[in-house]
Nucleic acid binder design. Structure first.
Length: 136
DNA sequence: ATTCTGACA
DNA sequence: TGTCAGAA
């Protein structure tokens, strides 16, 4: 279950998630208000999202584009598990390092997640979506 | 420079 | 949902 820990680690701030999902901060926060996602928080109250959070956001995005509203999405998507809720929050020290997560590092993680994901049923970060980050 | 919450011409 | 203000 080591991989689950990796997927639930709170890693990226909302800015990166915006680029990853093509959703606005407004939308991301709105979905959180409706408990579709429960990102972790830093000591400074900043949201930190995990791979699982990003995946859920992509699923939500797909449904929205299909014309499903929040109420409908709530019925279709299973509520976030407790394990995901208390997502491994980074301690102060790890958090400091996380501050300088470079683009290349991010891409490495995404690529790794894409591979490990397809290597099992879960299909990690919806194929077409994030593929645009490595198209070259 | 980034992100957070609350509010609404 | 966009966008702006005022505060971390």
């Amino acid at each position: 279950m080591t991989d689950d820990i990796r997927r639930n680690m709170a890693l990226f701030p909302i800015g990166i998630v915006m680029k990853l999902t093509d959703l606005t901060a407004r939308q991301i926060r709105y979905y959180e208000q409706h408990e579709l996602i429960v990102p972790a928080r830093t000591a400074g109250n900043q949201r930190l999202f995990s791979f699982n959070d990003v995946e859920r956001l992509l699923e939500i995005k797909a449904l929205i584009e299909k014309g499903v509203n929040i109420a409908g999405i709530k019925q279709v998507m299973l509520p976030v598990s407790r394990e995901s809720e208390d997502a491994t929050v980074l301690n102060e020290q790890t958090e400091v390092k996380r501050k300088e997560l470079s683009e290349s590092q991010l891409h490495r993680m995404l690529k790794q997640d894409l591979l490990q994901g397809n290597r099992r049923g879960k299909v990690s970060l919806i194929q077409g979506e994030l593929s645009r980050f490595f198209q070259r």
